[in-house]
Design a protein around this nucleic acid. Structure first.
Length: 190
DNA sequence: CCGCCGATCTTT
DNA sequence: AAGATCGGCGGG
């Protein structure tokens, strides 16, 4: 079932490992979350919200349980679940999925570079492309689930997820705020 | 399999 | 000027 608002109304470092093994879905396309990173607002120089609210990151400062989608490197989208309390600027970046349904559509959306199932959603920009998530989905309510949902289908988070530093950061790269499902072939990198 | 580099454009 | 990335290319 769909996660409720209170699930997200916590520190992203608590929410992130709890999101492992949950199911992210848009329409017919869905995948199991196998890799996440926490971004911690004013205490986190790696977070988009570190320097306060802007037009781009406004959703991050809104109520929890909404999707923050940003555009980067001139060509990629990445998506986050907003956490904590309204105004705090906290979020969890979804970094990889294990594809579950709609695999034919995902393969079409990803294009010829995705030759195997593990190429479909093994990175934050790959999974948004596979599911068709873009800036138009910025702010989508994950709790009402009208467009995009995150649900618990009965698979518990791993008892011992792997915990490492985050990927691709120049500032704040020392914090161990990345978690992934051990030995899962769909993570972005070990 | 690994590492380097270019693409491409918004934000600072 | 750099970025919460990706894919192609060359080398081991």
């Amino acid at each position: 079932m769909t996660l409720d608002r209170d699930f997200y109304r916590r520190d992203p470092r608590e929410v992130a490992p709890d999101l492992l093994n949950k199911v992210l879905a848009k329409g017919e396309r869905s995948g199991r979350i196998v890799e996440v990173e926490a971004y911690c607002g004013p205490i986190d120089p790696g977070a988009h919200s570190y320097r306060g609210r802007t037009e781009r990151n406004a959703v991050m400062f809104g109520p929890p349980g909404h999707l923050y989608v940003y555009f980067t490197y001139g060509m990629h989208h990445c998506c986050n679940a907003v956490c904590g309390e309204e105004g705090e600027g906290l979020a969890v970046l979804i970094r990889a999925l294990e594809p579950l349904t709609g695999i034919a559509e995902m393969t079409a959306a990803r294009g010829p570079t995705a030759r195997r199932d593990r190429d479909l959603c093994s990175g934050p920009a790959k999974l948004t492309q596979a599911l068709g998530i873009a800036r138009a989905d910025d702010g989508a309510d994950l709790v009402d689930g009208a467009r995009i949902t995150i649900a618990d289908d009965g698979i518990a988070p791993p008892a011992c997820p792997v915990r490492t530093t985050r990927i691709g950061l120049s500032a704040g790269g020392d914090h161990p705020w990345r978690w992934y499902v051990a030995a899962n072939p769909h993570i972005s990198r070990p």
